[in-house]
């Protein structure tokens, strides 16, 4: 064993007062010339003093364990929050996409299929007469634009109103009230009579309000002692309509129908 290997033992024995005689003299000589050794001896002495206090060491161990648990929990909480935020974001995007899709395509998610079709395909085009075809082409083009505009306008009149869609159905009502006709989403022919029928307790006055899909009021009636009401054929243009039944200014039923 060389001097370097013996050093830890010498330091330990020196600090515990167990180094005597020639070995002590040699060690003191080494201390005089070796600052690094002096530092190690000092550190060893401090370690002996500080680590001997097991009580504080035990407390430190507990503090550290609590501190580490807190950090772990903090990390877990953060990841949980991140996950929840991501899910909410995804749901939000999904809702936006659905709403956007509903606005863009009125035929989406509805059984409504207007009978109206562009008759531009049925236009007679005489391919054989080229001179006349130029005029016919211009006329056809204008007609196509007109048809397209009309079709677009018609499609718009069937577009769902998201605010109204959320209100459809019965609401809580003190007495009994049931809307028998039209069924929600019922399609009336343009030439048919628009018939409303209901069943209710007593003979209270009800108010019937019809709105188009933009929310514009189209028709209003106050009805006392009645259980049916109709609008003559041709009163309403083709489109999607919403109606509400009110009693004492309270909505008791909200429905929709179409005129095709």
């Amino acid at each position: 064993m060389n001097d370097r290997e013996k050093l830890p033992e010498l330091i330990d024995r020196f600090n515990n007062g167990k180094l005597t005689g020639e070995k002590l003299t040699d060690f003191l000589e080494m201390l005089k010339t070796n600052p690094r050794l002096r530092e190690e001896v000092r550190l060893d002495s401090e370690l002996n003093e500080i680590l001997a206090n097991m009580d504080i060491l035990e407390l430190r161990q507990k503090i550290l364990s609590i501190q580490q648990n807190r950090q772990k929990r903090k990390g877990t909480d953060f990841y949980f929050f991140l996950l929840a935020a991501s899910l909410l974001l995804l749901i939000g995007i999904e809702v936006l996409l659905i709403m956007n899709n509903t606005h863009r395509n009125p035929y989406n998610n509805t059984t409504l299929t207007p009978k109206y079709q562009s008759d531009s395909k049925q236009l007679p085009v005489n391919n054989k007469v080229k001179q006349a075809a130029i005029t016919t082409k211009t006329v056809n083009k204008e007609k196509k634009i007109r048809d397209w505009t009309r079709e677009k306008r018609l499609a718009a009149s069937f577009r769902k109103n998201p605010s109204f869609e959320n209100m459809i159905g019965s609401t809580r009502h003190a007495g009994y009230f049931r809307m028998d006709a039209p069924l929600i989403g019922y399609r009336f022919s343009e030439k048919a009579e628009i018939m409303f029928e209901w069943t209710q307790d007593g003979h209270a006055e009800i108010e019937l309000k019809i709105m188009d899909n933009t929310g514009t009021s189209i028709h209003e009636s106050r009805l006392l002692d009645k259980n049916k009401y109709s609008l003559p054929p041709g009163t309403l243009n083709r489109g999607l309509y919403y109606f509400k039944v009110l009693q004492n200014d309270e909505i008791i039923f909200f429905g929709k129908f179409m005129v095709e």
Binding site: I50, L51, L57, R60, L64
Partner: peptide, 11 residues
Amino acid sequence: EKTRLYQLHFL
């Protein structure tokens, strides 16, 4: 500070 440092290394 020394106590903390020494104890941390000891642990």
